[in-house]
Design a protein around this nucleic acid. Structure first.
Lengths: 328, 328
DNA sequence: CTGAAAGCGCTTACAG
DNA sequence: CTGAAAGCGCTTACAG
């Protein structure tokens, strides 16, 4: 910048003003400086700018990528979310630092990142099982928002869809189909999944006919492990006539495992998935599923985070959820 | 840092040395400083550190997330790659800046990011159709590496699997099954896909029996659009008896579209996908596919990029590829 | 409208 | 083993 100033015959502050679009620069001066800067292909050093302005203009996004490796992911759904967040950050001129979760999760790490001015705040995509960490972060008053289960009792801002309603919708579907032996497949240690189970449970309790409700924990939440665990379940226990899965990918694994046991949906069992993947509409059988509305999620998360960084206390938000009725 | 120095009764350089693990500090001094730093929960300001050291210690990763939105992605495969890169960067203490591709791709943007000291280099996951941009970047001697088609004539470093071989393996499979009317489904404007097509073409030429080879361009490369385009193809043209798809997700869309037309694999047509997703082993029918070995890809990309940043000229690398034979 | 001065928070020779 | 000085490349009052 000193060079550009010298070559333009002005001072550094003037160059800075021109490059930052300050209105208090004479038109003639502006043009001169811009011409010189362009000629020498000059760019402001963002690191210096950040140091001076004492903010990083970048946001940490925490996504459990590790669990995706070798097909260990539950569902590609989370990447939809990531795409939305990426767009919204770009629209606000914020950089996205992708942060892999720690092996031993602790609030300290996230605190350090902010203390070291690496990022101005965090967006957690999926609270997973790190609820205690999030509560601690909220206690330190660090700016962050979460995609996941929305619980008014939590001390932090969360955006998510209505998982309890999702469970109720699945229950209503099973009841309509006259099913009595329900199975829930999913890891209820995760808050979002737990809410879906509770919704299903509520629906079972409200059912006019008595209903039995079993639960199959799939701690790993991948296609392969879901397939294995469901196949094992069918070998040991009586087959249910209705299954609610934590994702459409899991629902596809369930179809494969049931088929292995000679059972087909919807003839032998009803099946409800989650997320409404494009594939689900063309799968054989076509999958009944719960749709989460994620188009606005990214922008909402970013808006709320910016509010938090500005010192505000953004409220949580619940997004619409609906049943997509298909063959299963 | 000045505060910590004062409270510890030493100078700033000494604090800096302690915190950076320099060996030339007296043990007693070190302990004193660490104690004070810990007590006040002090962290080095990384922005200042970067400014002083004139490097950013972060890497830009370019991934076409936008094309993923609303199910517009070809296959979740690329996220495997991202996970590997994320791990490898973390192992090298480098931050990952996720960079959405520009609407109008140009070398200028990437050049600016490096000029502004935002990142030390770039990793492009998939060269897509931005080959000219990459060539220009290579001309400017900027450090970057690419996952994608490996072409010894290109002036930049690429890591990828042997797509030409992938195409040949599919051709051999079709020939073994005695198929004569082959269809390639994929956007050959993308270098990787083009190589697969060329491999298939070579295989067709080598076939003892005459073979007809058609091509269906799917410019959008998503499940939904592939389904639509293939269904349209089947309405207009005679059905092929062998199909090679650009991904397993596409293969699943093809199964759905053919089923709509009353055709089943492998009875009516052979089908080869790409990427060997976990689902493919349990899909009905189970999918024959080409497997890319990506476990080492992330580490390899990062190693080569570091070599480039260090001023070296890393060579490209071809990863193993094999046919996974299943029902289709 | 413009510039001289100070400072953001570090680290790097250099001298001792 | 330690510190005084300089400087990484910006921007922010402040004065004119």
């Amino acid at each position: 910048m000193a060079d550009i100033a010298r070559l333009s015959g002005v001072s550094k502050p003037t160059v800075s003003r021109v490059l930052n679009g300050s209105p208090l620069v004479a038109e003639e001066t502006r043009e001169k400086v811009l011409a010189v800067a362009r000629e020498h292909d000059y760019r402001i050093n963002r690191t210096a700018q950040r140091l001076r302005q004492t903010r990083s203009d970048s946001i940490g996004v925490v996504l459990d990528l590790g669990s995706y490796r070798s097909g260990r992911i539950a569902d590609p759904f989370v990447f939809d979310l990531l795409a939305g967040v990426s767009d919204a950050l770009a629209a606000n001129n914020l950089d996205l630092m992708l942060t892999p979760p720690r092996r031993r999760e602790s609030a300290g790490f996230y605190h350090d990142q902010i203390a070291a001015r690496m990022v101005d705040g965090f967006i957690f995509l999926g609270q997973g099982v790190r609820d205690p960490v999030l509560r601690e972060l909220a206690g330190h008053d660090l700016p962050f928002v979460v995609w996941g289960a929305v619980d008014p009792d939590e001390p932090y801002c969360a955006v998510g869809s209505d998982n309890l309603l999702g469970g109720r919708l699945a229950a209503a579907h099973f009841a309509r189909m006259g099913r009595r032996n329900w199975l829930f497949v999913g890891d209820t240690a995760q808050s979002e999944v737990r809410l879906r189970f509770e919704g299903l449970e509520n629906g079972a309790a409200d059912s006019p006919e008595p209903v039995s409700l079993e639960r199959l924990r799939c701690s790993e939440m991948s296609y392969t492990s879901t397939y294995r665990e469901v196949a094992g379940y069918l070998r040991e226990l009586p087959a249910p006539d209705a299954v609610f899965a934590y994702s459409d990918t899991a629902a596809m694994a369930i179809v494969a495992a049931f088929r292995q046991a000679g059972l087909e949906a919807p003839r032998d069992y009803a099946l409800v998935g989650y997320n409404n993947l494009p594939q689900s509409a063309h799968f054989t059988p076509t999958l009944t599923t719960i749709e989460q509305q994620t188009q606005v999620a990214g922008a909402m998360l970013v808006d709320k985070l910016l509010e938090a960084i500005g010192g505000g206390r953004p409220g949580s938000a619940l997004l619409p959820t609906r049943l997509i009725l298909r063959e299963t």
